[in-house]
Design a protein around this nucleic acid. Structure first.
Lengths: 190, 190
DNA sequence: GTCTATAGTGCGATAGAC
DNA sequence: GTCTATCGCACTATAGAC
């Protein structure tokens, strides 16, 4: 008999999301999650640095989705085109099938300020990576940082709208709308 | 003899910043701050919801600085002009005299991810207030949210540069540079 | 895998301001 | 008398140290 079951990490994440959804985040203890997932509290904290992290671990795979199109772009591409390309490409990850899960996860996050702060922290990490990538491509400051901030902000706003209750358009369609709104905001056509 | 001295809140904030600066945030306990400020631990938590908050409480006065110029602007002002006005006006608060204090406070925040997350949370609150204000002025979505996000992001980036070690220009000068960089990023002149 | 420090909560009692 | 700031203490959960 195996000493431990495979997929402990994933089991903890699923168990946590389900408990958070039914009981609320604060009302769910780490001990409870661990018990339901058949491990000890100590094991939970070996997989996740803190209680909040169980909801966010694993989405760093998604960093590559954002940076890959930028790395592949022609060397003379303008920063705004790099951002546009990365934003639209990131939408491929968020297909219709993932929308229910994303909504359930976000519903938990939206109910707890501490989780909202962690979400912002993760986005800030993405901004820093993206800014460094743009600098490596020769974009100068302060443009590189502004471009990175703008890209991640547009991603976040697009994502929020994509999972809104009454939204059924694709991520790409929502993101395109926000890109246009930014351009019109900065340089109004009339 | 009085049971309690006036200005407990401010005393706790000053004591905390000093201890954080010398010992580090994690190495300083709430009990220690309370002892130095001549109150009990319980009193600390009556003034501040959590340990981090002692570094952030009080800066909500600064919200008005941001929103006031927008409320005063002519009804037909374009969103970008509202943002520009608010950003430059907020700079009046950050005069040369405040720079050393701001640098000391930020040095503590920069050393601790939990404090960085709280800072992002505070900025997110400002974004929400600002977005609601723009909507109340008749700006439609998604432009209102994009304008609010952009305004607060430009503020944050300007502030970060303003307190950089080698920076001696005024907040206004730094912010103006970032406004120009955004415009050039979104619609390059060449 | 166990043990412990710290953060943070709940509640009743108390002291002074009004 | 009411209101508010403080104290004091018991308590739980997180998180890190050993």
């Amino acid at each position: 008999m195996a000493r431990w079951q495979p997929g402990t990490r994933e089991r903890l994440q699923e168990t946590a999301l389900q408990l958070f959804g039914t009981q609320g985040y604060d009302a769910t203890t780490v001990a409870e999650i661990a018990r339901d997932a058949q491990v000890t509290e100590r094991t939970f904290f070996r997989h996740f640095a803190d209680k909040r992290e169980v909801l966010f671990a694993g989405q760093s795979d998604f960093l590559g989705l954002f940076t890959h199109p930028i790395e592949q772009a022609p060397a003379d591409a303008a920063p705004f085109e790099l951002v546009r390309g990365a934003l639209l490409a990131s939408g491929d990850f968020f297909d219709a099938e993932k929308r229910p899960f994303s909504r359930a996860r976000q519903a938990v996050i939206d109910q707890n300020p501490a989780l909202q702060e962690r979400e912002l922290g993760k986005l800030a990490t993405l901004k820093i990576h993206l800014g460094a990538l743009l600098v490596a491509r020769g974009v100068t400051e302060p443009t590189a940082t502004i471009a990175a901030e703008t890209a991640v902000t547009l991603f976040h706003l697009s994502f929020q709208q994509w999972i809104a209750a009454d939204e059924d358009r694709s991520f790409r369609a929502v993101a395109t709308e926000r890109l246009a709104a930014l351009q019109d905001f900065v340089h109004p056509t009339r």
